[in-house]
Design a protein around this nucleic acid. Sequence first.
DNA 1: AGCCGGCCTGAATAGTTGTTCAGTTTTTCA
DNA 2: TGAAAAACTGAACAACTATTCAGGCCGGCT
Lengths: 225, 225
Amino acid sequence: MVYRRTHQVVKRLAARRSAILAAAREAAAESGMSAVQIAPVAVRANVAAGTVYRYFPSKADLISELIAEVSRDELAAIRRAADAAPGPSSALAAAVSTVALHVLSQRKLAWGILAEPVDVDVTASRLASRREITNEIASRIDAAVRAGHLPAQDTQLAATALLGALNEALVGPLAPDDLDDDPARLRDTVQSITLLALRAVGVMDARARGLVVQAVLPAKALVGA
Amino acid sequence: MVYRRTHQVVKRLAARRSAILAAAREAAAESGMSAVQIAPVAVRANVAAGTVYRYFPSKADLISELIAEVSRDELAAIRRAADAAPGPSSALAAAVSTVALHVLSQRKLAWGILAEPVDVDVTASRLASRREITNEIASRIDAAVRAGHLPAQDTQLAATALLGALNEALVGPLAPDDLDDDPARLRDTVQSITLLALRAVGVMDARARGLVVQAVLPAKALVGA
DNA sequence: AGCCGGCCTGAATAGTTGTTCAGTTTTTCA
DNA sequence: TGAAAAACTGAACAACTATTCAGGCCGGCT
């Protein structure tokens, strides 16, 4: 045996894999999922088209992994924000505004991950991604219900509906598209949608308004990180 | 000139066009948008593939028209339900439950019209479709706000969010998929989502529950029509 | 009947990209 | 240094469907 995987080689392989994934992510963030094509991604990652196939069995696998990666990041951000909140209702508010801020600040990417038509089948991966986020939100709603802050309800359905509302209102085709240049309007939009979401699960209007103000400011600070 | 379009010919041409559109709609309702391919649709409509192109310049135009048609039907149903309601809040409740029932009873079609990936560009048509429905809902919310039943709010954003919530919860990948065999569960789901939607725009929980019950029963009767 | 013009047919065409693979380069180790 | 093994390259391939168009067909007119 005259060839073994040296530590150095292993590191290079891993780096290349990351580079390909990063290239795909950049392409998606810049121009949407339709721009995630093997040839362009390979160019961006400084490899040949064939090389991509040494790291990912197919385009579907590449995109699936991209979706999973973004989803993991998102979930971590939600948990960080929610866990920092003082109580269950606050945590829910923090979770919702975190999602809202994230999708607004990476709109193309969010749209690509969530719903943009792709020529390969990535439904399984998208399903998993949604399920993770939905479960997290559902458990936060559950906690608030158990604490007596919200009426009993189908928390899974509610969580799904909340995310649908956020996504459609903030990244869908009818989403306002000129928020980036106006921080104040962006904040207002996040507040409005968070308020809507909290009321939807049964938080009283007055209380919801208070929670929203408390949640949006810290969430905004976290987006930079 | 020895050939003119006789009334009979005009009628046949119109019938053919309808047949093609109907074939496309059936295919979409049965197997989703991916089944709307020129060759299969042509077979279903009893014409040759080339003939489709005498009626629609391209597949994109065919699908766009399909989307527009379904959207018109939906809008009409919403208006019918809402206009029959005794007041603005009731009308909103009726509109929402109508949408909910419709998408649930034609799930594949709804998914196809709304969000299913298609290989041609139909974003403009989908945008128009959403805009129509959203505007209708927004104006119903507006009416309720003006009547003093709801707090002032960005009604366009709210309407978009409501529809997003419905669609995601009822036809999205996380939607429950075994409602068809159980009418009671279907009704419960429609009620839950309507309740959620009403609360989201600021209807008080207790009042919302009343409106929901009043709205779902007649809406259900209308679905058959 | 017979001619004319548009309508219809369906096999061939075309364009788009994901995927493959024979040949080349790089890396490891005796 | 040289041989072996793995990695990389990129042009060729493959598959899938929308779209075209030359030729046949049919309805309408005199």
